[in-house]
Amino acid sequence: MAEEMEVGCARPTGGPVGEEPSEEPVPGTQSGKESKPMIQVGKKAPDFVAPAYQKGKFISVKLSEYLGKWVLLCFYPGDFTFV
């Protein structure tokens, strides 16, 4: 599933994949503002790729590679804080 990454001195980055956010401002929102509405239950989660550390390896994780499994995705403010 997740492939091991070659890690050099550059810090690897990820980000959303798939549909680019539409350029057209959504009616009722400020144009040019980056804020987006909260995603909705019952709707597809936005796909993404992200570098990760797991059990001694640096890997690249893509959300859509977990199709067929249940995923618990947890965000937190920073390492060395609780979850």
Binding site: F48, P51, A52, V61
Partner: peptide
């Protein structure tokens, strides 16, 4: 930790999830 610890530089994924 047994599961992947994901990195989101710049919070781009976090922004996509709001």
């Amino acid at each position: 930790v047994p599961f992947p610890m994901l990195s989101d530089a710049g919070g781009r994924v976090g922004k996509a999830f709001g």
